[in-house]
Simulated assay, not measured.
Amino acid sequence: MTTPTLITVAPTGAESAKTEVPALPVTLDELLLTAKECEALGAAVIHVHIRDEGSRPTLDPGRLRATVAALRESTDLIVQLSTGGAVTDPEADRLAVLDAGPEMASCTMGTVNFGDGVFLNRWEFIVDLHTRMQERNILPEYEIFDLGQLTALQRLLGKYGLPAGGHVHVDLVMGVPGGMPGTAEALVACRQAIRDLPAGTTFSATGIGRSTIPVMLAALATDGHLRVGMEDTISYAKGRPVESNMQLVARAVGLAHVAQRPPASTGQARELLGLSSRSAA
């Protein structure tokens, strides 16, 4: 059978400023509209960062809970919260993200230079995040910025056990300055390493900036899934700013159809990831 393509939209992120990227969804109303539009096109997961009233990145617990509740009420998307936040966010605030009760949350598997900053992920913090998600029945998406982080994930799972539900899902974040390049060769190397993880492990791939299209094509050719959105790229093509997250999701959907791997519905996505149905959640 053809494996459907899980499409994740990451609409906002913590890096771009609203003043520089006017189309960036930063209010709750903008995020909800984006979520509905992208779900209608074929997205099944939404990777969420939130902003405060001044459009600055925030991990405010009340705003996070309200965002999760609103997305659940308005869509059937799998809500995945970022525990990365901005690179300056303290560990305690990042751990508290789980209190908002998402179905999924990110778990970055190591420290990486992130442009001019450092995205710090100590081993003790990774273990704490992983075990808290086990206790709360939240599915991690293990974020991989470099090949060695897949080895770190193998160590984590071997020592502390599988996620709740037993399914392992990773996201290859490719093309970040300081991380692995966004190339087909790098993706294939990661694909080989993923084979050493538990049977049934799935992966998505994210191409930052100009690596978006090469990474999408390589992922589709190797049974991978896709993450797109304005968190990862604000240019649709050279000299063409992204007008909305819908543009990026629509392109991913089109390529998935070309690859004869049409987008997974939200129900298929939950089955693929081993998540319980919405009615049982």
Rank of each mutant, 00 (worst) to 15 (best):
T2Y: 03
P102T: 02
E185I: 11
E37Y: 03
T233E: 07
L120G: 05
S244G: 11
K36H: 05
D223P: 06
L197I: 05
L275N: 11
S211H: 14
L248E: 13
A35G: 14
L59A: 05
P11Y: 03
T131P: 06
M1E: 12
L120E: 13
R227L: 05
S55C: 14
V188M: 07
E30A: 15
L95H: 06
Q134Y: 02
L248A: 08
K159Q: 14
E143I: 00
L28F: 08
G239N: 11
A105N: 11
L32S: 09
T206R: 05
H49E: 03
V48E: 06
A92P: 05
E37G: 07
A70N: 06
G54H: 14
V258H: 05
L157A: 11
T131V: 05
A86V: 01
M133R: 00
P262S: 08
P4M: 04
R51K: 14
V215A: 08
L153K: 15
A10M: 12
T183A: 06
H49T: 00
M133Y: 01
L28D: 01
Q134I: 02
L172G: 11
S276P: 02
I194V: 15
V97I: 03
E231S: 09
T88W: 14
P102R: 00
R122E: 14
E20M: 04
R195Q: 14
H169T: 11
M246Y: 07
L150S: 10
K159H: 09
W123D: 15
P140L: 00
E243W: 05
E141K: 01
V215P: 06
E53C: 03
T212K: 03
E185T: 13
G101Q: 04
H169F: 15
T212F: 04
G178P: 06
L41A: 15
M180C: 09
E271K: 00
L150M: 13
H257W: 02
G254A: 08
P263Q: 01
V26A: 09
G200V: 11
A219S: 12
D223W: 13
